[in-house]
């Protein structure tokens, strides 16, 4: 398969679900088309029930498209072999509770054809990556939500996939766990792994994604590079450290004397509540 093939290519995807015996079918995904190139982090955002998870399931061959097609690195996603290159973290993953963290990774690794020392080393690397080395011998049934997401991410990456699909990766996870998952996503991007994630937590998507698609009522209503989508083209932001009131007044005078320029807003930039929370607990932890 050609290396320049898109990591994900969804063309005119339609997915309808039967409702009652004679009722009209429910169209969950309506003519969605998107392409994700290798190495990109793509975020599909939309409210609950907008068709994000259905799109992902169709891409993984868990649902058969009513119309249209899904390809992974040029291969039809209905074919089982296409999943060799894919790691998937479902929403609220519930792994086999009777297995420990280490056993969970061994099970999924063996399904993908890994074995022996290769698998053992891979498990070590991934447990360290997701910071679960100390919990490797604990049963997954006793894991917290954040730990479940992290072991889920590790199982998704067990066979060195070129594409990782994450369905609401930070849903229900506390800010610290959420930050760790976002850091992991950024690490994947640094390694050239394509990431396709869907979420309704917009700020998190904004932090990690190169491109974003907005899906609503089954339709992809907007798509593009994140910076292009969120930039306000006719405005410019200047942030100055240690500016006294005299300097601010002078700047305002310059703007007023300029033709066509208008001062929209001055004030102090604010941190987010999440950043404040993380900073405070880090400080508390260090002390």
């Amino acid at each position: 398969m050609a290396n320049d093939a898109p990591a994900v290519e969804i063309t005119d995807l339609v997915k309808e679900f039967k409702t009652t015996m004679r009722g009209r079918p429910l169209r969950a995904v309506d003519q969605v088309s998107l392409r994700i190139m290798p190495g990109e982090v793509y975020g599909l955002i939309g409210p609950n029930g907008s068709g994000k998870s259905t799109t992902m399931k169709a891409l993984l061959g868990l649902l058969a498209p009513t119309a249209g097609s899904c390809k992974i690195f040029g291969r039809d996603s209905i074919k089982v072999d296409s999943r060799q290159d894919v790691g998937f973290l479902p929403e609220n993953p519930y792994f086999y509770k009777h297995l420990t963290g280490g056993e969970t990774l061994r099970f999924y690794g063996r399904l993908c054809g890994l074995g022996g020392s290769v698998l053992r080393e891979r498990i070590e690397v991934l447990l360290e990556l997701v910071d679960l080395k100390d919990a490797r011998d604990r049963r997954v049934g006793g894991y917290s939500k954040g730990m479940l997401q992290r072991i889920g991410l590790a199982q998704a990456m067990i066979q060195h996939p070129r594409l990782v699909i994450l369905d609401e990766p930070t849903a229900g996870v506390d800010p610290v766990g959420s930050r760790e998952i976002r850091d992991l996503v950024l690490k994947l991007r640094d390694q050239g792994i394509t990431v396709f994630l869907c979420s309704h937590l917009l700020e998190q998507v904004q932090e990690v994604c190169d491109r974003v698609g907005i899906i609503f009522a089954g339709k992809l209503i907007r798509e593009g590079k994140l910076e292009e989508l969120i930039a306000i083209e006719d405005q410019t932001e200047v942030v100055i450290r240690h500016a006294d009131s005299a300097l601010v007044s002078r700047i305002e005078e310059i703007i007023q004397s300029s033709d066509g320029a208008e001062l929209v807003q001055t004030g102090k930039p604010r941190t987010t509540l999440e950043r404040l929370f993380l900073k405070e607990i880090k400080r508390d932890h260090q002390s």
Binding site: K57, L62, R83, V86, P90, N92, P93
Partner: peptide, 10 residues
Amino acid sequence: RTLYTVLAKP
């Protein structure tokens, strides 16, 4: 939903 994780593998 453990089936997802198994069938999402090859």
